[in-house]
Design a protein around this nucleic acid. Structure first.
Length: 192
DNA sequence: AGGGAGATTTTCT
DNA sequence: GAAAATCTCCCTA
């Protein structure tokens, strides 16, 4: 357990696009009781306040309130009547910005993840709602401080710029012109 | 292997 | 009342 250390608040308080890029290769650590689930982030998307695709675009509501907190919190939302998706809140308190975790690669605790989400192979974690199922992230985890001990992000492998790709975001109905989806090029665990 | 429809219910207009 | 930062299944090629 001491081998993984939470990133400082200052990591999250930077501009959202910068945080999104730097999250690639980082490790998301989720402690459930004595067990520890660890995954590497391979795909994410930035959502800014001035962005019509963002939940925060029309201001603060009960649902998106966590997005407006200080950087370094976990925003988990419910959608399509059955799915949860996880975001890392970025920027300063009052800003309303976050990065959606779209796909991850298992690093540790794969056995328990497979219990949470039995689909074999990459299908286990190659989508935002799949990640939440595998890691058991739901309503109860919304608002968790990532600078705490139960859920946090630890510095992982440094991904060189030559292996980072930017593309348009998936599943949105506005903001198609922005290339704010960040991926580790050709990683087998990417979504779709 | 890629595309389209249906599932299902919260959330905000 | 309509839309939703998705997933799965079933279809065609």
């Amino acid at each position: 357990m001491p081998q993984y250390r939470p990133l400082p608040r200052s990591f999250y308080r930077r501009p959202t696009l910068v945080v999104a890029r730097d999250l690639l290769g980082c490790l998301l650590v989720r402690r459930i009781g004595r067990k520890c689930l660890v995954v590497r982030i391979v795909e994410c998307e930035a959502y800014r306040q001035d962005d019509p695709a963002s939940h925060a675009f029309r201001g603060k509501t009960p649902r998106n309130e966590v997005m407006f907190r200080d950087g370094g919190h976990l925003y988990v939302y419910f959608t399509y009547g059955m799915h949860f998706c996880s975001n890392v809140v970025t920027g300063r308190e009052g800003r309303g910005e976050a990065v959606l975790i779209r796909a991850v690669e298992p690093v540790e605790g794969e056995e328990l993840m497979r219990k949470n989400r039995p689909n074999p192979g990459v299908d286990m974690t190659n989508g935002p709602a799949k990640v939440c199922q595998a890691l058991r992230l739901g309503r109860a985890e919304n608002g968790t401080d990532l600078c705490g001990a139960s859920i946090f992000i630890s510095r992982g492998r440094r991904i060189p710029s030559s292996r980072v790709r930017r593309s348009t975001r998936i599943g949105i109905s506005a903001g198609h012109e922005k290339r704010w989806r960040f991926t580790i090029h050709e990683n087998p665990w990417l979504s779709r």
